[in-house]
Design a protein around this nucleic acid. Structure first.
Lengths: 112, 112
DNA sequence: GGGCCTGGTTACCTTCCGGGTACCAGCTAG
DNA sequence: CTAGCTGGTACCCGGAAGGTAACCAGGCCC
């Protein structure tokens, strides 16, 4: 789903850290487990994902819940605050999509 | 106008690099010269401002014009692309302002 | 000539971010 | 006993970002 060489790297708008925005997108559809997040975030290592999740939690955007039971089960979920950030993110995505060609052109013109 | 310890550092939404968003805000009202930009961006050094301006120019968000004449005169101005980014920035600012307390609370809760 | 304004450049240093590898405990299935 | 899944942690590394201090040319004023 998300590529390590994500096109959004070209966008001047960034949410949280490098993977933060994508993590939030992954949680948009409901709670997810650690290993479930690693699937769409292709190429992310456990360490980096942990890092990103801890930061998002510190900033109050997601919550971490250890479920009871014999086997280990941790769920990450968007908080109300995190969910409220989806709106600005949509705006940013729309802007990036709309001006995609201009962004590419600017880079190419600058490279030459 | 802008503080080096800008409150927006707490916002998970960032535009361009550290000073990029503020530079764009400074140019909102029309073209500005290098030294005019240094006034509101308190504490920014020439090198860092140059760096930021070069990046913004590379990304097609601002334009740099050397004016003719005996004394040196350089003007920086928002391009159409740069100006179009003001809308997403407004949305981001509004979100940050609206959820300011929650952002602070989250940090404080995490610190304890 | 000396000082100041213009808009920078250069070298250097420090911090942070992201990533790679290895390793861990707890539980389960074969 | 061994392998595999869960969700991580510890350690090291390289590169980029951000900042400091010094210096620069060109033109102005005195």
């Amino acid at each position: 789903m998300f590529d390590p060489v994500c096109p959004s790297d070209l966008s001047p708008i960034r949410f949280a850290d490098k993977w933060g925005g994508m993590v939030i997108r992954c949680l948009e559809g409901g709670p997810r487990r650690f290993s479930e997040l690693r699937v769409p975030l292709r190429g992310i290592t456990a360490k980096v994902l942990t890092q990103s999740l801890r930061t998002l939690e510190r900033d109050g955007l997601i919550s971490r819940t250890e479920m009871a039971g014999p086997i280990r089960h941790v769920e990450y979920e968007l908080t109300a605050l995190g969910r409220s950030m989806l709106a600005p993110m949509d705006v940013a995505c729309a802007w990036t999509a709309e001006h995609w060609d201009e962004l590419i052109d600017a880079r190419e013109a600058a490279a030459s």
